[in-house]
């Protein structure tokens, strides 16, 4: 076990987890107002109309792919009768289109951002860093999938996935990661950075995904709060004294 390995696979995951959870809680408590998609559709919609759904459907597909391959143990998948070969086919033939869609969508989004004056003006430095890491993670993920399809099959479910779950048991199996092909290692590292950054970028809008909309009544009534002077609840320390 090298010290770099220890840092990457034994320390970084926890740092990112703390950032992810802590950051989300912090935004929820102190920056609800900043929690938004910051939609740029008002500026430009012709390109967005194609790029944004392409990217989002791709990235959501990729997300569920990761659940299937990394979070759910191999034994469970085997248990429902999907063997190694079948899994490999599914992962390749669903994973590649999803990844390509996400990549193509993101590429278009970035080009649009760069070339449409008003959208570019509305791009913060935070956004720029985020796009680099996001693009990196997607490219590396795709690279890993292609490598696997060409050189493989390599069953990451016995190495990367086991390490991933071991992180949550508090006993990270660092040795497993150190032995995986390099492209998986870089993808995992960049992925962790992305996860750690998530709540501090515009990406946090994903955590507000409005699934609740399916179940609530159409018209929302709310009562004026007599204890509250403004329309928003006061910041901590500024509550009304009674």
């Amino acid at each position: 076990m090298t010290s770099a390995g220890l840092l990457l696979w034994g320390v970084l995951p926890y740092v990112c987890l703390v950032a992810l959870i802590g950051g989300t809680v912090w935004r929820h408590r102190y920056d609800k107002f900043g929690w938004t998609t910051r939609s740029s559709e008002l500026y430009e919609k012709r390109l967005l109309r194609i790029a944004s759904p392409l990217f989002h459907y791709g990235i959501i597909g990729a997300f569920f792919g990761h659940i299937l391959g990394v979070v759910i143990p191999k034994s469970w998948i085997d248990g429902i009768g999907i063997d190694e070969h079948a899994y490999h086919l599914i992962a390749t033939w669903l994973g590649i289109p999803a990844g390509l869609a996400a990549l193509a969508g993101l590429a278009m989004l970035i080009v649009r951002r760069r070339t449409t004056g008003s959208v570019f003006d509305a791009t913060t430095n935070n956004d720029k860093v985020m796009y680099v890491v996001l693009l990196g993670a997607i490219c590396l993920g795709l690279a890993a999938t292609f490598w696997n399809a060409a050189e493989g099959p390599y069953d990451y479910r016995t190495s990367v996935s086991v390490w991933f779950r071991s992180v949550f048991y508090g006993d990270p199996k660092i040795a497993l990661m150190s032995a995986t092909p390099i492209v998986y290692r870089i993808h995992a590292a960049v992925g962790m950075v992305l996860i750690g950054m998530f709540p501090f970028t515009r990406l946090i809008h994903a955590f507000a995904a409005p699934v609740f909309y399916m179940f609530r009544p159409y018209i929302v009534y709310r009562s004026r709060d007599a204890r509250q002077l403004g329309a928003r609840s006061p910041q901590r320390g500024w509550e009304r004294v009674r």
Binding site: A208, P210, F212, Y213, R216, I219, V220, Y221, R222, S223, R224
Partner: peptide, 11 residues
């Protein structure tokens, strides 16, 4: 409104 942020005041 998907997030239920818009509302009609009952008063």
């Amino acid at each position: 409104c998907p997030s239920g942020a818009m509302y009609k005041r009952s008063e």
